[in-house]
Amino acid sequence: MINSIRSRQIILIGAMVLLIAFLFTRDIKGLVKPKEEPTAAVPAGGQMAPAETAVINLTEVSVTGKNLLSANLAAEITALENAYKSAPEANKAAAAKLLAQKWDDVEQAVPSALYLELMAEKEPTLNHWLSTGERFLKAFDNTRDSLLQPALLQKAHTAYTNAVKIDSASADAKTGLGITIVNGMGMPMQGIAMLMDVVKKDPKNLKANMSLGTFAMKSGQFDKAVNRFNDIIAIKPSPDAYFYLGTAYENLGKNEEAIDAYLKSKKLAGNATLSKFIDDKVKALKSKN
């Protein structure tokens, strides 16, 4: 019974996605109960099943993405793709980078990440693999395709693994790798330990701290999440940190604290979509008091 109640209360948090930045183009993160949210096929041990990690076809992804764009934008991308295909080998990386940027400009993270991957394969630098991993994680967080998610997570994992091979001390590489492990590319505690190591060496690392906070929420450890988000706010207050803090307080039944955090998130964000959601949530919480 207790587990049933908890499962209805826990709010699913998307790792590493800032709530505010994508409100106008994506679903609001962290607002959907688990039973309402499609998830990737993850075995009980936390690892993605190899059978689910399908190959992503760049041509198919491009066609699908361009179907969502205006004719002019689609034509621009087609021209860049043709330039990439005809470019000499020495210029392939630069051409792939242009395509990645163009796809990112139109909020298409999957093809953008695939072109960053091509760039990194041609010019395997730390920054290139970090950019690739970050973009694949962005695509992973935003997709609702349960078959595509494992493939995107696998590619993010590979990118960050390559980054760590280049610089094993890179906090960004270790943070990204830890996030992919916790999300399904290994045993969760292995990823948590990696993130904790990053925070131990750099207590003000916002990305690692934010990931630890959201993972604490997903596992129902709301007291730990409150502490983590308060630490983040002490370093750098942000709308998403306050929003997640409010969510943690709400799940603990601390409605007054939740209302205060939500209102601070609303004030910092200055976003009409979020403001409306928070106004409704605050009204509902006040009615419980």
Rank of each mutant, 00 (worst) to 15 (best):
M1D: 11
I2V: 14
I2F: 14
N3V: 12
R6E: 13
R8M: 13
I10K: 09
I11F: 04
A15D: 08
M16Y: 06
I20N: 09
A21H: 10
F22N: 06
R26Y: 01
D27W: 11
D27R: 10
D27T: 12
I28Y: 08
V32A: 09
V32D: 07
P34M: 10
P34T: 07
E36M: 13
E37G: 06
T39G: 05
A41K: 11
A41P: 01
V42E: 02
G45C: 09
G46W: 00
Q47G: 08
A49S: 14
A49C: 09
P50D: 11
A51W: 07
I56A: 03
N57A: 12
V61F: 04
V63W: 07
K66N: 09
N67L: 07
L69Y: 04
L73Q: 11
L73W: 04
A75E: 11
I77R: 00
A79N: 05
S86I: 02
E89N: 10
A90E: 00
N91L: 15
N91F: 13
N91C: 08
K92N: 05
K92H: 06
K92D: 06
A93M: 02
K97M: 13
K97I: 09
L98S: 11
A100N: 00
K102Y: 05
W103T: 04
W103Q: 06
V106K: 02
V110F: 05
L116W: 02
L116N: 00
L118P: 01
M119D: 06
M119V: 05
K122T: 08
P124G: 10
T125N: 06
T125G: 07
N127G: 03
H128I: 03
L130Q: 02
L130I: 15
E134W: 00
A139Q: 04
F140Y: 01
D141M: 03
S146G: 04
L147I: 11
L148E: 03
Q149R: 05
A151N: 02
A156D: 03
H157I: 01
H157L: 01
H157V: 02
T158G: 05
A159E: 08
Y160I: 02
S168H: 15
D172S: 05
D172Y: 08
A173V: 12
A173D: 06
A173E: 01
T175R: 00
L177E: 01
T180S: 10
N183M: 12
P188W: 05
M189P: 03
M189G: 07
Q190H: 14
G191W: 04
I192D: 02
I192G: 00
M196D: 15
D197Y: 08
V198N: 02
D202M: 14
P203C: 09
L206C: 12
K207Y: 11
K207F: 03
A208C: 11
N209H: 07
T214Q: 10
M217P: 03
G220T: 06
F222S: 04
V226D: 02
R228D: 00
D231R: 11
D231F: 11
P237L: 10
D240E: 13
F243N: 04
L245K: 06
G246V: 05
A248N: 02
Y249V: 07
E250T: 10
L252D: 01
E257T: 08
D260N: 12
L263P: 08
K264V: 14
K266E: 14
K267L: 10
G270Q: 10
G270C: 09
T273A: 14
T273E: 15
L274G: 00
S275A: 13
K283T: 14
A284G: 12
N289E: 15
